[in-house]
């Protein structure tokens, strides 16, 4: 160990990082493994497309569903690409 290392800030404990990562991951894996709602995102995406299509013509690729799993909070992000100009019937 050189003198330089002694002056350096102590490195963060990696064991704590390991524990934190596991706790977040397993909380999600336990709730999803083996249950029917394991992969509900594709179904949700299909339903959203169907709902919007009742009013606006959109394609399969125009709805994007993304999930971000966090420690305190998980967020669901839904992006819908609406067609730019709605063709006017009166024109």
């Amino acid at each position: 160990m050189s003198l330089f290392d002694l002056l350096r800030k102590p490195r963060p404990k990696t064991a704590q990082t390991a524990k934190d990562r596991l706790q977040i991951l397993l909380a999600h894996e336990r709730s999803s493994t083996g249950s029917a709602e394991a992969d509900y995102l594709p179904m949700l995406q299909r339903d959203i497309i169907a709902a919007i299509r009742k009013h606006v013509p959109i394609g399969e690729q125009d709805v994007e569903v993304r999930m971000e799993r966090g420690d305190q909070m998980s967020s669901l992000e839904i992006n819908i690409d609406l067609p730019g100009a709605v063709p006017s019937k009166a024109g």
Partner: peptide, 16 residues
């Protein structure tokens, strides 16, 4: 290694 914080402790693993 546990004492150095490089390895999870018994308690860490049991808690998980």
């Amino acid at each position: 290694r546990v004492e150095k914080g490089e390895m999870m402790t018994v308690e860490d693993v049991l808690e998980i």
